[in-house]
Design a binder for these strands. Structure first.
Lengths: 138, 138
DNA sequence: TACAGCCTTAGAGTTACTCTCAGTCAAGAT
DNA sequence: ATCTTGACTGAGAGTAACTCTAAGGCTGTA
């Protein structure tokens, strides 16, 4: 059993956010002790994990709540849950593709600046060697 | 030369957002025609592209403005711009890693639901075959 | 008795849009 | 000559998902 502080450290989610998510109905199974303090079980950590996963792919909290509610509802919702997971996976894959493209651009810029720095150093004695690319400001 | 509507389509950014970004000082080079209408050049599209790139990796608008201002300032800011690009690239790489991890979880869940669906269909005549994983709700 | 750690509700602040007016202007079609 | 379209502006409300502070309360330990 873990306190909210421990869960915050283990899962790298702020206590604020964990309480916010709890209030949003994302963790319906968390037990409380005699003093009303949340006691996260290992299984509860799995719920934090899936919520984190859905959030990190940009799933809205409303849709996360929907998924949780479907889980609670039981076996009759399995197909809908399966579809949610599948479409989330597709979303994650297209995000991967997007980040790859952005990485290409960033690597191009990185090399561009590396060359620029090299040339500028040479400029110390040869000011004619400057190169500019059209995408860069004067 | 492109109108804002065309740029919106080409770059897949809403006109609202383009004007918002323009007002934020992200496109200092856009020319206007006699009627004050923005005329995006191909070079301006490159600026939209880098802004999109920085945003998609989660760079704050404040930092994007900083980068643009450094570009305007000229050669003396090349090293700082290089560092920004490098750290942004690192950020993108760690986001890739994160998405990969989330994909692992989503694929695990996907298979889990596939099995569940298979077993539930068999349950039609054999109700004893049900399997549940502890991470799933009743 | 002080303090740390947990709890609650309420509410303000933040970021980056997102959208809706309301009003202006100019070019082209009817 | 008027109407429609597409662009512009500024103001301002709304949104999501936090993020943080404040105020107050309980409990177990030093």
């Amino acid at each position: 059993m873990y306190t909210i502080k421990e869960v915050s450290k283990i899962m790298d989610v702020s206590e604020h956010t964990l309480r916010f998510w709890a209030k949003s109905g994302f963790f319906p199974f968390i037990k409380r002790d005699a003093n009303n303090i949340r006691q996260f079980s290992d299984n509860d950590l799995e719920w934090v994990k899936i919520v984190k996963c859905l959030r990190s792919v940009g799933t809205e909290n409303k849709s996360i709540k929907r998924y949780i509610d479907l889980c609670i509802a039981g076996d009759s919702t399995i197909e809908e849950r399966y579809e949610i997971i599948r479409s989330t996976k597709q979303k994650a894959l297209s995000q991967m593709e997007d980040i790859k493209k952005q990485l290409d651009l960033l690597e191009f810029k990185e090399k561009f600046y590396q060359n620029l720095i090299k040339n500028n150093l040479e400029d110390t004695w040869n000011p004619m060697k400057r190169i500019k690319l059209d995408t860069e400001a004067v």
